[in-house]
Write a protein that binds this DNA or RNA. Structure first.
Length: 665
DNA sequence: CGGCAATGCGCC
DNA sequence: AAACGGCGCATTGCCG
């Protein structure tokens, strides 16, 4: 961090919904205006600007800060302040623009250091007190147009109160800044790249989105009507009430989640329920079957992405601000607004036609002939859901170059553990078949024993982070016995990858010793370091994972409660609250592996950016660039390039590559 | 009416 | 001799 900085915060009002539109579209909206602007300088002086006088001429002090290239602009969620600065301060009031390199984001650093993102929670956790709730209410009241008058309330009292609230936030941000300091190592550059990617955005084909919405709007009403007739006035989204109705109609069901429902629907087709999991005889009354079927279609949340796509589409047709830097623990990006990280994967459940191409699907949706769509792709709503990701398109003169790392986490965990014999099956054969052979002690190949191979795949992907038999059974093979699940677990731990088991305990031991001794501890090149309020984990990439608030614990062993051993726990923010979580080996291993996989991706994104192959989206192990066909060869080379630390661990990186004008999987 | 927690769903 | 993965958003239902 430069020695000179100012920490600033805007309060704004708009007819635009910030949550739905995102900062970029919100700032661009002509009804958006600034209702308060406060800042504190590194000297500690605070300034409240008059929102009616925002020109540079009226604010020479702020202008001097802007004109001094050594002054950093600090904000909490700087993407928002940057957008307001660019769209309003620059375009309406003629301020000079401030480049990304001169911004600092306290939220990004908080996330990097394992702290909550929301300012009031963060402030509470760090001991600075919670948000000024009364001021928050006033500011929120001022932030929206009066529904009756369609106007903003500009009364001087309200403006003053909002400004005071704004200043309160700035003061909290300054405290956060003084406690969290700067990005560690190369992360400053990663954040800047994140801002460039978010600024760049990704083009949305709004004609296609409208066609999709048309299909849904035509398909939905008859389903809702029928559902209402069946259930006596319910909506498909009313889960609890539906359970009651189902019960009254002869179907006891404790969960309406997909797995439970599909099992029940499936059971009926076969010749009876399995003995060990269905405790009561299930007869599926036809009305219940129909209601559940309609619910499956109509309550599907994925088509809700369609209006979200339009809401965050900027005036040039591109959606921006879809990714949150370090939104997930070990440094992965999190999805925002339309959540580009969880588009349904097309193909598996799409009607009868499993081989239709995305182009055919898209053409059928654009055609608007629902009966044709139904004939070729099955339920129209499912077809739309399957084609959702095709709404993201490349610019007309460009194309998407897409690469994802093949089974990267399974490879990284084996490599870090030093289990190179098991890694051979990834590069020389079919790892899932090899795993299945260890479980079933019989030759397995993809074509002849697909079910056995699937079990092998589940085992490899599921077992690297200490998953146990009960969970394995529940997730992958509910029809098998617990003994069978245990045999899969054993095959992984004892036969395929005993060194991974050592890695779990090695990392747990190193981290625990670091917490208890106060000294750095290393295992397989991973170093745990006590650093004041944090325990950090130094990865081979040179990046650190940060665990906030580590504490010594004594853990009774499950096989003997009198056998109590040292461990540690840390604070993590989950489901809106801070919880203390036990740091066990599988978790630490998962964090390290996800972190290293993320760093491999970041390495490649940097290489691509450097070669002017710009990234428009990343999805954990996938890089989506918008470029030209001629660049495909270079792109593929760059995406298989690995940094030196990965070569030392002998991580075998391979990619699946695709070129397409529409996003697809 | 908005805030909050719980639940469910999609992906990696 | 052992184990709880992560994320965001939509919805409901409860509360004030």
């Amino acid at each position: 961090m430069s020695k000179k900085w100012i920490c600033l915060d805007f309060e704004t009002a708009s007819g635009c919904d910030l949550k739905k539109a995102g900062a970029y579209v919100y700032a661009e909206n002509p009804t958006t205006e600034i209702t308060a602007l406060c800042y504190v300088t590194h000297y500690g002086y605070g300034y409240e600007l008059d929102p009616a006088k925002l020109s540079p001429e009226d604010n020479p002090g702020l202008l001097a800060e802007v004109n001094d290239p050594e002054v950093m602009f600090v904000a909490h969620n700087a993407a928002f302040e940057r957008a307001i600065w660019r769209e309003i301060m620059v375009k309406r009031f003629n301020w000079p623009d401030i480049p990304i390199e001169r911004w600092h984001c306290t939220m990004a650093v908080a996330l990097m250091k394992g702290l909550p993102a929301k300012l009031d929670v963060l402030s509470t956790v760090l001991g600075f007190g919670g948000k000024d709730m009364e001021g928050n209410k006033v500011a929120l009241g001022l932030s929206k147009f009066n529904k009756k008058t369609g106007m903003l309330d500009h009364s001087p009292a309200l403006i003053r109160r909002t400004s005071a609230y704004c200043m309160d936030d700035v003061e909290k941000e300054v405290k956060v800044l003084r406690r969290t300091h700067n990005f560690y190592g190369g992360e400053r550059k990663v954040w800047e790249m994140d801002q460039r990617i978010n600024d760049r955005g990704i083009r949305i084909d709004d004609k296609y989105v409208h066609a999709c919405m048309g299909v849904v709007q035509r398909a939905l009403p008859p389903l809702l009507t029928r559902f209402s007739e069946l259930t006596g006035g319910l909506k498909p989204t009313q889960g609890e009430k539906l359970k009651g109705w189902l019960s009254a109609n002869g179907l006891e069901i404790d969960s309406l989640n997909k797995e439970t429902v599909s099992r029940l629907m499936g059971e009926e087709l076969e010749d009876g329920p399995d003995s060990d999991q269905i405790t009561q005889p299930i007869t599926m009354p036809p009305v219940c079957r129909e209601a559940l079927y309609i619910r499956g279609l109509a309550a599907s949340a994925s088509v809700k992405k369609l209006p979200a796509m339009l809401a965050c589409q900027g005036s040039d047709g591109r959606a921006r601000g879809l990714m949150q830097y370090h939104g997930a623990g070990p440094g992965r990006w999190a999805g925002r607004i339309l959540q580009p990280h969880n588009f349904p994967r097309a193909g598996l459940d799409v009607g009868d036609n499993q081989t239709a191409s995305p182009d055919e699907l898209m053409a059928a949706i654009m055609e608007g002939d629902d009966s044709y769509l139904r004939m070729v792709f099955g339920e129209p709503i499912e077809a739309v859901s399957a084609g959702l990701r095709h709404a993201l398109v490349s610019d007309e003169d460009k194309t998407f170059l897409i690469a994802d790392f093949k089974t990267i986490e399974a490879r990284v965990v084996l490599a870090v553990a030093g289990q190179h014999d098991a890694l051979k099956s990834f590069t020389e054969g079919d790892p899932y078949s090899a795993m299945a052979e260890k479980i079933f002690h019989t030759p397995v190949n993809k074509k002849d024993q697909p079910e056995l191979r699937q079990t092998g795949k589940n085992t490899i992907l599921g077992c690297g982070f200490q998953m146990g038999a009960p969970k394995f059974q529940m997730r992958y093979c509910p029809k098998e016995t617990i003994e069978f699940a245990q045999s899969c677990i054993d095959a992984y731990r004892k036969d395929l990858a005993p060194k991974v088991v050592e890695l779990w305990y090695g990392l747990e031991r190193a981290a625990t010793e670091a917490v208890w001794s106060g000294e750095p501890q290393e295992y397989n090149g991973i170093v745990y370091i006590p650093e004041g309020e944090w325990l950090t984990c130094l990865l081979p990439s040179g990046r650190k994972l940060w665990y906030y608030g580590p504490q010594k614990t004594m853990k009774p062993m499950p096989w003997d409660i009198n056998d109590v051993r040292p461990g540690w726990s840390h604070l993590t923010y989950k489901a809106g609250r801070l919880i203390r979580r036990d740091a066990y080996g599988g978790l630490l291993t998962e964090n390290v592996v996800q972190g290293m996989a993320r760093d491999l991706l970041v390495h490649c994104v940097f290489l691509c950016e450097h070669e002017q192959i710009p990234t428009v989206l990343t999805v954990h192990d996938e890089n989506v660039c918008e470029s030209h066909t001629e660049r495909a060869k270079l792109f593929r080379e760059l995406m298989t390039n690995t940094p030196d630390w990965a070569k030392q661990y002998k991580i075998p990186v391979e990619i699946d590559f695709m070129q397409a004008d529409r996003y697809r999987k």
